[in-house]
Structures are given as structure tokens and as C-alpha cells.
Write a protein that binds this DNA or RNA. Structure first.
Lengths: 135, 135
DNA sequence: GCTTATAGTAACTATAAGAGAGTATCTATC
DNA sequence: GATAGATACTCTCTTATAGTTACTATAAGC
């Protein structure tokens, strides 16, 4: 990687090729940094995963994601909607029913996220546990 | 994905195969959730990327990551060290010199992270810009 | 008429992040 | 010999973000 040039490159371990990035994730105002910040969030990736199966309703999502608050679920969904990764459809039924679904753009995020989850599953167990700190 | 069973599965878009996850990222206490939380952090991925080139010193990292504070850099590096993804080597030279490097475990994280950055680069530009909100 | 469900909002508190000054050690400069 | 500069931090204070709890509107069901 180059320092101070604003242009970044690195090796892609998958294709074993050097990749050139036109955008600079180390710059706060770059779209790639914004995209990275969006998914560098405690809940975003989990929501995207859940929606990979098809549209889901608010309460359905809430039940599945352990520890998420209503506020954070709403906030994260609105952010994803704003960024164009998720659609929000309101059905004006008696108790209102709202369905969230991935947009085509949102679906493109699935592949890298699944890779990350595969990593978390395979290598997460090798990480030191918080218990070892407590001793 | 199944609801309420604690076991999660999904499709891997890369291999086009259904993947079974022995661990449950939707559970706060699961190692996979911990691994996910670790990288769902504003600075971790950028630091890991920078270290993919080889060991780097504290100030070198700071210079390259736009907008990171000393506190957050120290904090994130310590966390990565604790989790076993990064090593910290102190050389007792005149002004002390500290070198940070990826562990083999840290290197396994490079591949999924590069995928994510590739996504951020390719699709990040399609996301709605914050400017459109300001109108 | 009371309870339950949905999809939230509002107000408040707790935690985390960011800004900026300060620290120890040695080198180099004036 | 005093002063400044570099490295790799830490400490304190302020601000921002996340989390908690209570509350709302509407209709169905008992």
C-alpha cells in the first residue's frame, strides 16, 4: 500500500491478483469509506443476512436478532433504506404490517458478508475468549 | 434461515452451496458473534488492510488512516492483540519503536475483508449520497 | 371493556468515541 | 545547558451514539 498518495492497492487473496482501488477507503469522504462504515455496524450485517431468505416483517426481525432494541432496529432499517439496500413496504392492514426486503444492490452485499460470517465461524473460535481476561 | 432454533444456515453465493453454521451469530455470547462484532468496527478493517503489507509502526498507521485518534488507534490495536490477530513488538531503541504485525490468524481475515472492500468500491458509488438528504 | 399484536416514537440514561493536553526518554540543535 | 522534536503512548473532558423503558394508535379477539 502506498502512503500519502490517496491511492490504495493490495493483493486479493482469492484471485491472487493485485487489485487497484480507484477510491480511497482511508479518506473519510470517499464513497468506499462510507460503504465500509455502513456495514461496520453491530446490526447491519445481521439484518442483511436475515433478509437474504426473502422479505421479513419488523417483529420477525426483532425476534431473531438477539439483543437488538426497537430503536436500533428501526434506526438501522431506515439507514439501509436511505442508502438503497433495503425497501420498506407498508400494508395498510388492521394492525399495520411492514415488510422489509433487499434491493438488488442489497443482494450484492450478501456474498462478501457471507464470506465474513464463514470466517467468523471458522476462525472466531481461535480467538482468545473474554473469560481468559477475567482471571 | 430458521427462526428460534439457534441454528443458522444460508446460501454461499460464491460456491452456490447451502452453508450450515454450527455457531449462531444471532446469539450475543457466541464466538461467531464476537468475531463479527470485532470487525464491525470503524477502524479494525482499515488497520488489518494496512498490515497486510507487512509490519508497521504506530505513527505510520496513524498517518495513513485519515481521522483516527491516537486513543482509538491504541485501543483498537490492543483489542486486536488481545484477540490474537495482531502482535505488538517493542524495540527498546532510543525513542521506543513499536511494530505491529498480523498473526497467521490475522492473515486469514484478509481475504474476506478484501472482498468487502471490493464490494465497497464497486457498489458504494451506487449508494445514495449524503448530499441528496441535505436538499 | 380488557387484553394482545403491530410498528413504531419520545424521553432519558449509559456507554463509547473524539479532542486535546500531558508524559517519559533520548537526540539534535542553538 | 536550555530548548525543541520524535515516538508511543495516557489522562481528562466533552460530545455523540447506543441502549432502556414507557408510551401511542388501531383493530381483533375474549
Amino acid at each position: 500500500m502506498q502512503e500519502g498518495t490517496g491511492k490504495w492497492y493490495g493483493y486479493c487473496m482469492v484471485t491472487n491478483k493485485k487489485i487497484i482501488l480507484q477510491t480511497d477507503p482511508f479518506d473519510n469522504n470517499c464513497p468506499s469509506r462510507r460503504a465500509l462504515d455502513l456495514i461496520s455496524d453491530k446490526w447491519t450485517s445481521l439484518i442483511i443476512y436475515l433478509l437474504s431468505d426473502g422479505p421479513q416483517r419488523y417483529t420477525q426481525l426483532k425476534r431473531q436478532i438477539g439483543g437488538i432494541s426497537q430503536k436500533m432496529l428501526t434506526q438501522t432499517l431506515r439507514k439501509l433504506e436511505e442508502e438503497g439496500l433495503v425497501t420498506r413496504t407498508v400494508y395498510p392492514t388492521a394492525p399495520p404490517s411492514v415488510e422489509y426486503a433487499l434491493t438488488p444492490l442489497g443482494e450484492t452485499l450478501l456474498e462478501p458478508l457471507v464470506r465474513l460470517l464463514e470466517w467468523a465461524q471458522t476462525f472466531g473460535l481461535q480467538m482468545r475468549s473474554p473469560a481468559s481476561e477475567a482471571v
